[in-house]
Design a protein around this nucleic acid. Structure first.
Length: 979
RNA sequence: GCCGAAGUGGCGGAACUGGUAGACGCGCUGGACUCAAAAUCCAGUGAUGGCAACAUCGUGUGGGUUCGAGUCCCACCUUCGGUACCA
C-alpha cells in the first residue's frame, strides 16, 4: 500500500511493522518507529542541539526561510528545504563547527485575518493552533533545531524590536555625502543652520528653503518637510479599494479587476500611508550583490528589480503655459524623434492639461484605467490611450507634439511621464501605429544588421546637431547640451520603488506612532514599547478604508487628545530582521546582544524558495544595511550563501461533469469521451486518493473510487457515472456491449499542493508508514534540491529497502548482531572511500540526491562483499548520520559508543584507496563510439594511440579511410578522425 | 507583457570542467522461494531492425560552432516562479 493523501483513520503499514517487531527478536528487525522515538527523546533530554555563542569553535549559521504557519499544516513540499539544511547543519557539526540552526514562525499575516472574518476565530488563537501543528509535524521529521531559540513574530517580546527598528528608520534619513543613514536630529540642526540647500539626501522631491524659512514653519509644516527625508515616512499612494467590501484588497485578492471574494468592482484609490525609503539603498543593494554567493539568476532578478538606468531628467515646456513637464529618459539622443508625450493617467497635471473638447473622453479613460490593476496595465495586451488636447514643445527643435495619457506609463516609475520616440522604442512604436501618430526615423542602423529597435547602435540622421554621430557619442553630446542649456541634467533612475509599509488590517504589528491634534506624527518612547496589539472580537474592516483597530476607540484615543496610528505593519516587517533575533532570542534589552551578533555575524547558508527573490530578500538586505549604518551589525550583507529549493508540486485529479444535467441528474463521464467538447463539461477536482494510477495519463476511478466520491459529496448520490465500458448509477454497474471496464478516466494535471485541490500529502502520514529517516532520504532522492518536481510516493519503497539493507549489513544471516574487528580488504576500503568522497563532495555542492544514490551503491557493494567489519561499517554509519540521524544513532550506540553520533568526526577519504590500475577507454571514430579498450592508467599518449590503432574493431571501421588526426584525452577517451 | 528557471526512457532523475547518454531508484517482464499471496532474492529492461554479433535512431523544436554537444551560441515552443498588499 502506498500513501496517497491518506484519509484519516486508515491503519498504515507502519503499524504492522511495529506489531511484527514485538513478535520477532527486537535486535534484528529494523523498526524505525521504535528507534526514532527513542533517539528523539534522547536528543531532547540531553539537549544535544542546544548551542551557545560562548564557544571556541568556529561558527556556522544555517537558516531556513521563515515559514508562515498556514491553516493547512505542512505538506510534503515544505520540509524539502528544511531537510536539506538540516543535513548540511549536521554535516558541519560533524566537521567541528558550532552550528546555529534555529526555526520559528512568521506569524502575522492576512490568511489568519481572513479566516477570522469568515469564522470569527481570533487570529491569535488560529495562529497558535497552526504553530502547534507545525511544531508537531516538524518534530516528527527529526530536525536538529535548537528549539530554545524558537521565534514568533506575533509575540510582543519579539515585535517590540520590530517596532523599535521601525522607529530607528523613522528617526533617520539617508545622507548621500556620508553615504549612510544619519539621525534626523542632525538634519534638523543643519536646517536651522542653512536650510536644505546644501543637504544632499535621498528623499521625495520638494521645494528648497532657507534657515529662516525653516524657523518660521509650524510644527506641522516641519513634520511635512521631514517626511520627505525620513527612511520611514508618510505619503499618498494608491491601493486596491473595494467599495462593496469596504476594504483595501491585496493584489492577491483581486482577480480580473474584481474582488476574489464576491466579485465586486475594485478601483485604485489614493491613501495616506507609511512607506520605507528602500530606494535610498538602491545603489548599495545593487553593488553589494557582487559579494554574495547566490545563483547568478537570483542576483540578476534582484538587479533587474532594482533596475538602475542612467539617463537624463529633461523638461518639456507646455504650449501656451509657463509650466514644464518633467520626464526621465535613457535615450536623450533620440529627442529629435519624439513625436508625442505620454503621461500616466494618475499624473497630477492631467486635469489641467485636458482641453474642454477632450474632457469627456479623458474622464472615460481615467475611469477605465482606474479599474485596471497595475499588473494588467503592464501586461500590454491591448493598446489604449487618449489625447489630452494640449501640446508640449520639443526643447531642441521647437516642434509642437501632442500630449496623451496611457496606462502603459506608470505613475510610480520615473516621473510618470515620457517622451515617446516610436522609431526607437517598441511600445512607443506600437502606440504610434495604433493611433496613427507620426514616426520619424532618426538612427540609421544599416551598418548593424539584426539590431533591434531599442539597440543603442547606429548613426544619427534627421537629428540637427547630432546628425552623423554614432549613438554613444550622440548620447554624450546631448547630455552635455542639456546641462549647458539648463533644461535638465544627467540622472540615475531606479525601477525599485519605496516599500508601502501600511496595511489597513488587524493582524500585524501596531505602529508605535501617535498623532497630535495637528496631525504631526510622534514616535513612542522606547521604554513604552512594545505597543501591544489590543484584543478585538470583530475583524471586519472599519469604514473608509480604516483598519479594524480604528473602531477600538479607547485604544485609539489617548487622554491628552492625541490619537494612535490604526494601520498595522505588513507581513515583511517581522521577517526582515528575524535572522538577527535568533542569535539572542530572549534578550529584553536589545534586539540581540553585541556579543551574540559579533559571534554569529551572518547567515552562512540560507535555504528557501525563489518566490522570495525580490520581496523578503530585498527587504531583509535593506534592514541589515540600515542596522549596519547604525553600527548595530558587523556585516554589510546578512545572507552569505543562498540556495533555492524547488517547489514540490502535487497532482490534481479532475472528473468531467457534464454542465447540463440529464433528466435532472448529474452525469460524470470518462475523460476519453469528452473529445473536443471540453466546453460542455466542468472539471471537478477530487481527492487524489480515490484515483488509481494517479498522475498518469490513464488515471481513473473505479467503482470503489466512485463510491468514496459519493460518500464525500452526497449531493451526487444519484449521479450517472459514464465509465469506459458501462454505466454506474446508484450502486449498480451496467455493462455496455458486454464490456467489463468500470474505469472512469480522470484528467491529471501537475499543480500546487493545496487544500482546494484535495491533493495535500501530509508528511506525518509518510513518516508514520516509512519512518522519518526514510522520509528525509526520499525527499532528497526525488531530485536536485533547486528543481521543481511533482511528489509521488511510489518511489519511496526504494529508499525504504535501502535503509533495511543498510541496517542488514550489521547482522548475519541468522539476524544476529555480527561485527568483526578484522582488517578490511582492499575492495572494501575502496567501496568505503569512494562513498566518503562522493558524499562529501556532493554535500559541498548541495547535490543531496546523488549522495543518496552514492549510499545505495556502496550498500549494494558491501552486501555483495559480505562485509561485517567495524572499520568499514562504523564510518558508514557516521557518514549516513546527517541524512538518517535516527538509524545512525541506533547503530552507533550498538557499536558500543555511549555519546551521541551527532558529535562524531565525519569520515575523510584517502585517495590511496581509490587508485585504479587500468582504465577503459572508449574509442570513437568521427565522434561515434565504435570500440573500447582497457589500458593501464597513465599510459603515454603515443602508446595509447598505437594500442587503439592496432585494434581489429578499429581497423574494420577505418578501412578505405585516411586517418587525419587522433585525439587522446588521457584516462578519458580516444577519438580518431578519418575520411 | 516584463524578469528568472526548467524541458533527458513508462516515471523521478544521473552525466560536476564540451569527452562512453540513461548511474541510482520506481515501474514493468521473466525466474527462484511459497499451497498461494505479500515480502525477499536473481536476471532483463531507451526505440527500431535482427536468432545473434551488430546496425540505425535518440536528451522539447529548428539552425549553428566543434574532432566530439544533454552540456556552448542563435531563434522558437511548452511548463513553472516572481511581477511590488499572499507569505
Amino acid at each position: 500500500m502506498s500513501i496517497k493523501a491518506k484519509p484519516k483513520g486508515i491503519p498504515l503499514l507502519g503499524e504492522f511493522v511495529y506489531f511484527r517487531s514485538i513478535l520477532t527478536a527486537a535486535s534484528m528487525e529494523y523498526t524505525p518507529r521504535e528507534i526514532e522515538k527513542k533517539w528523539k527523546a534522547y536528543w531532547d533530554t540531553h539537549q544535544v542541539y542546544r548551542v551557545s555563542h560562548q564557544s571556541d569553535k568556529p561558527k556556522f549559521y544555517v537558516l531556513d526561510m521563515f515559514p508562515y504557519p498556514s491553516g493547512a499544516g505542512l505538506h510534503v513540499g515544505h520540509p524539502l528545504g528544511y531537510i536539506a539544511s538540516d543535513i548540511y547543519a549536521r554535516y558541519m557539526r560533524h566537521k567541528g563547527y558550532n552550528v546555529l540552526h534555529p526555526m520559528g514562525y512568521d506569524a502575522f499575516g492576512l490568511p489568519a485575518e481572513q479566516y477570522a472574518i469568515q469564522t470569527g476565530v481570533h487570529p491569535a488563537k488560529a495562529t497558535a493552533e497552526n504553530i502547534a501543528r507545525y511544531r508537531t509535524q516538524l518534530d516528527n521529521i527529526g530536525f536538529s533545531y535548537d528549539w530554545n531559540r524558537e521565534l514568533k513574530t506575533c509575540d510582543p517580546a519579539y515585535y517590540k524590536w520590530t517596532q523599535w527598528i521601525f522607529l530607528q528608520l523613522f528617526e533617520h534619513y539617508y545622507d548621500l555625502d556620508a553615504d549612510k543613514a544619519l539621525p534626523v536630529s542632525e538634519l534638523v540642526a543643519r536646517f536651522e543652520q542653512s536650510g536644505n540647500e546644501k543637504v544632499r539626501a535621498a528623499g521625495t522631491p520638494h521645494a528648497g528653503f532657507s534657515a529662516s524659512e525653516w524657523k518660521t514653519m509650524s510644527p506641522k509644516q516641519k513634520d511635512d518637510v521631514l517626511m520627505n527625508y525620513r527612511l520611514a515616512f508618510r505619503q499618498v499612494t494608491y491601493v486596491n479599494w473595494c467599495e462593496e467590501l469596504g476594504t483595501v484588497l491585496a493584489n492577491d485578492e483581486v482577480k480580473d479587476g474584481v474582488s476574489e471574494r464576491g466579485g465586486f468592482p475594485v478601483e485604485r484609490r489614493p491613501m495616506l500611508q507609511w512607506l520605507l525609503r528602500i530606494t535610498a539603498y538602491a545603489e548599495r543593494l545593487l553593488h553589494d550583490l557582487d559579494t554574495l554567493e547566490w545563483s547568478d539568476s537570483m542576483k540578476k532578478m534582484q538587479s533587474n528589480w532594482i533596475g538602475r538606468s542612467e539617463g537624463a531628467q529633461l523638461f518639456f515646456p507646455i504650449d501656451g503655459s509657463d509650466k514644464k513637464i518633467e520626464i526621465f529618459t535613457t535615450r536623450p539622443d533620440t529627442i529629435f524623434g519624439a513625436t508625442f508625450m505620454v503621461l500616466a493617467p494618475e499624473h497630477d497635471w492631467v486635469k489641467g492639461l485636458t482641453s474642454p473638447e477632450h474632457e469627456e473622453s479623458v474622464a472615460a479613460y481615467l475611469k477605465y484605467a482606474n479599474a485596471r490593476s497595475e499588473r494588467e496595465r503592464m501586461a500590454e495586451k491591448e493598446i489604449t490611450g487618449v489625447p489630452l488636447g494640449s501640446f508640449a514643445i520639443n526643447p531642441f527643435n521647437g516642434e509642437k507634439i501632442p500630449i496623451w495619457i496611457s496606462e502603459y506609463v506608470l505613475k510610480d516609475y520615473g516621473t510618470g511621464a515620457i517622451m515617446a520616440v516610436p522609431s526607437d522604442d517598441d511600445r512607443d512604436y506600437k502606440f504610434a501605429r495604433h493611433f496613427g501618430l507620426p514616426v520619424i526615423e532618426i538612427i540609421d542602423k544599416s551598418a548593424y544588421p539584426g539590431a533591434t529597435r531599442q539597440d543603442k547602435v547606429g548613426v544619427m540622421i534627421n537629428s540637427g546637431f547630432l546628425t552623423g554621430m554614432e549613438v554613444p557619442e550622440a548620447i554624450k553630446t546631448i547630455l552635455n547640451r542639456i546641462e549647458e542649456k539648463e533644461i535638465g541634467k544627467r540622472q540615475v533612475n531606479y525601477k525599485l520603488r519605496d516599500a508601502i509599509y501600511s496595511r489597513q488590517r488587524y493582524w500585524g504589528e501596531p505602529f508605535p506612532v501617535i498623532y497630535d491634534p495637528d496631525g504631526v506624527a510622534h514616535p513612542m518612547k522606547e521604554e513604552d514599547l512594545p505597543l501591544e496589539l489590543p484584543n478585538l472580537e470583530d475583524f471586519q474592516p472599519s469604514g473608509g478604508g480604516k483598519s479594524p483597530l480604528a473602531r477600538h476607540e479607547e485604544w485609539v484615543d489617548l487622554p491628552n487628545g492625541w490619537r494612535r496610528e490604526t494601520d498595522t505593519m505588513p507581513g515583511f516587517a517581522g521577517s526582515s530582521w528575524y535572522f538577527l533575533r535568533y542569535m539572542d532570542p530572549h534578550n529584553g534589552e536589545a534586539f540581540a546582544s553585541p556579543d551574540a551578533i559579533h559571534y554569529w555575524k551572518d547567515v552562512d547558508l540560507y535555504i528557501g524558495g525563489t518566490e522570495h527573490a525580490v520581496g523578503h530578500l530585498m527587504y531583509a538586505r535593506f534592514w541589515n544595511k540600515f542596522l549596519y549604518d547604525k553600527g548595530l551589525v558587523p556585516v554589510i550583507e546578512p545572507f552569505k550563501k543562498l540556495v533555492n529549493q524547488g517547489m514540490i508540486q502535487g497532482v490534481i485529479e479532475y472528473m468531467y461533469l457534464q454542465k447540463e444535467k440529464v433528466d435532472g441528474v448529474s452525469r460524470f463521464v470518462s475523460a476519453e469521451m469528452v473529445g473536443d467538447k471540453e466546453d460542455a463539461y466542468a472539471r471537478i477536482p477530487i481527492h487524489v486518493e480515490y484515483v488509481e494510477d494517479y498522475g498518469s495519463p490513464h488515471s481513473y476511478v473505479g467503482i470503489k473510487g466512485i463510491e468514496q466520491f459519493i460518500e464525500w459529496r452526497p449531493e451526487f448520490v444519484d449521479a450517472i457515472f459514464e465509465c469506459a465500458q458501462g454505466v454506474y448509477q446508484k450502486g449498480v454497474f451496467t455493462s455496455r456491449n458486454g464490456g467489463k471496464s468500470s474505469h472512469l478516466v480522470t484528467v491529471s494535471e501537475v499543480g500546487k499542493m493545496s487544500k482546494r485541490y484535495f491533493n495535500v500529502i501530509n508528511p506525518d502520514d509518510v513518516v508514520n508508514e516509512y519512518g522519518a529517516d526514510c522520509f528525509r532520504m526520499y525527499e532528497m532522492f526525488l531530485g536536485p534540491l533547486e528543481q521543481a518536481k511533482p511528489w509521488d510516493t511510489k518511489g519511496i519503497d526504494g529508499v525504504s529497502k535501502f535503509l533495511r539493507k543498510f541496517w542488514g549489513l550489521f547482522f548475519n544471516d541468522q539476524g544476529e548482531w555480527d561485527i568483526s574487528e578484522e582488517a578490511p580488504t582492499r575492495e572494501e576500503l575502496k567501496t568505503l572511500h569512494l562513498c566518503i568522497k562522493k558524499v562529501r563532495e556532493d554535500l559541498e555542492r548541495f547535490s543531496f540526491n546523488t549522495c543518496v544514490s552514492g549510499f545505495m551503491i556502496a550498500t549494494n557493494e558491501l552486501r555483495r562483499l559480505n562485509t561485517n567489519k567495524r572499520s568499514i561499517l562504523e564510518p558508514m554509519a557516521v557518514l549516513l548520520a546527517p541524512f538518517a540521524p535516527h538509524v545512525a544513532e541506533e547503530l552507533w550506540h550498538r557499536l558500543g559508543h555511549d555519546t551521541t553520533v551527532v558529535e562524531a568526526k565525519y569520515p575523510e577519504w584517502d585517495e590511496t584507496h581509490l587508485l585504479e590500475d587500468s582504465v577503459t577507454y572508449p574509442i570513437s571514430i568521427n565522434g561515434k563510439k565504435r570500440a573500447t579498450i582497457d589500458l593501464p592508467v597513465g599510459m603515454p599518449v603515443p602508446e595509447v594511440e598505437k594500442a587503439a590503432m592496432e585494434m581489429q574493431a578499429v581497423q574494420k571501421w577505418l578501412e578505405g579511410m585516411t586517418v587525419r588526426k587522433i585525439i587522446v584525452v588521457p584516462n578519458r577517451m580516444i577519438n580518431i578522425v578519418a575520411n
